[in-house]
Design a protein around this nucleic acid. Structure first.
Lengths: 261, 261
DNA sequence: AAGTGGTCTAGACCACGTA
DNA sequence: ACGTGGTCTAGACCACTTC
């Protein structure tokens, strides 16, 4: 009989107890010392089992606090209408703030602006020389004081020359997309790329996420009718975010309550 | 001085050596016993450091084989044109096979068909009663014999009545979307949802992924002009896949070589 | 002060892959 | 057969949180 390793039995037992609701989201698990008794295993073995659940994103440890079952309150972003000037929706400031406020939550943002040499991946997308100057607007976003996402947008230098507020430190109240449009730079097309991976140590500390939580990476290139004007890379906490796109004719789509319109 | 824990120093040292290319993708790392000498640490400590890199998706261990630097050959899926009948592109069979072949790789698929009670999440999307019968077409996909994604599509019973091949076991050669269209069920709108998370143990074994690799979850609801007709949930290996959407007018977009069209 | 997880050691034996 | 990682033990001391 190929019996499972002890540490896996520990993980499997706890995982199913969590799934059954024996330990609710936010609840505390028994301490390691208690589990040592319960499973008759050494501390290292119990910790190996707990580690499996940590890397699955199911629990999070806290020194002196014990292990807690992770809670997930997912925020949904509609990427197909996000920032879309074509539909001339009324927005209160930038897209992030207005969408978060509309969900009844509290948005916060930290800004930083630098002039940098465009990294290769950016310069290629923006059609400028590698190492050419670009303005980087970086921003870290919070929802209800929880770190939510980071966003880094590169603008080519030629654009900054005609839209100088891009290089001013601090927020652009009406939103950069709106500001650019007011300057005659209207974005009418987007190319989006999505991928997922585990965070780098730097991202993990910026977003305050521990092991077991992946990030969603969103790269959007914005185009006017003539050329690309910006490259935005947004990194989301994977456990708190979901994205939607609507394609084609959705007149037959149900509303949120599941009833047909 | 808050000096970092030893196991973190091990992880950080190896991570930067990998980033510098000192260990190329696919290359073997020194053995644990060698690292014990190099770092002057106990085996458990070295293993803790290696574990960090495993959960970051950077290396993968193999009993008897040693540790290898992960290789990533990313496949890009264009979700905004995927399955889109409106543009009447010519497809050789189903969308997956044709796209993989077009990339010069070798697609394989395993099929399974069942009649099930629709789970709540599906019945809500399809506008049918919870627990109502539905046909589940499940499929596991491979690229060059590497497990790539799993896909589960639910069709409501009323649709199967008029399109009986949906419940036949095995592949539908021309692709189910095409088959449905030929039967007069033309999908003209999609609602897509994307999220990421760590795989369940079941998903991890289906996709042959170890710790440190997240999955991308894609849920697509397909609509005719009248109502929803299917709900497809696709689960991708996060390390091998990337998704793109094109929105609006992209006539100004560069081609792949970075030159303007 | 007491209890929690965090780090670390020094062993042991097993299971797998390669040669 | 040998070297690799996989599992497991039984301790020790530290750092943090809670009371």
């Amino acid at each position: 009989m190929a019996s499972k390793p002890l540490y896996r039995q520990v993980a499997d037992t706890l995982r199913s107890e969590i799934a059954e609701g024996r330990f609710a989201p936010g609840a505390k698990l028994p301490s390691e010392r208690e589990m040592i008794e319960r499973f008759g295993a050494a501390r290292g073995t119990v910790r190996a089992g707990l580690n499996v659940l940590i890397t699955e994103g199911l629990i999070s440890p806290g020194q002196g606090r014990g292990y807690q079952v992770q809670r997930h309150e997912v925020f949904t972003l509609d990427a197909s209408s996000h920032e879309n000037l074509l539909f001339s929706q009324r927005e209160d400031g930038d897209s992030f703030s207005s969408e978060v406020k509309q969900a009844g939550r509290d948005p916060k943002q930290e800004f930083r602006v630098e002039v940098v040499e465009a990294p290769p991946e950016v310069s290629e997308r923006l059609g400028i020389a590698s190492g050419a100057p670009a303005v980087l607007r970086f921003c870290r976003r919070f929802v209800d004081d929880t770190p939510w996402s980071t966003q880094a947008t590169h603008y080519p230098q030629w654009l900054v020359d005609s839209c100088p507020r891009l290089s001013s430190p601090g927020d652009i109240a009406e939103g950069t997309t709106r500001y650019l449009a007011d300057q005659g730079v209207v974005q009418i097309g987007f190319h989006d790329e999505w991928s997922t991976r585990m965070p780098t140590p730097d991202e993990a500390s910026q977003l305050q996420i521990g092991p077991g939580i992946p990030v969603l990476v969103w790269s959007r290139t914005g185009y006017t009718s003539e050329k690309p004007v910006r490259r935005t890379v947004t990194i989301f906490r994977g456990d708190l975010n979901r994205v939607t796109y609507d394609l084609g004719d959705l007149s037959a789509m149900q509303d949120e309550e599941g009833t047909v319109k």
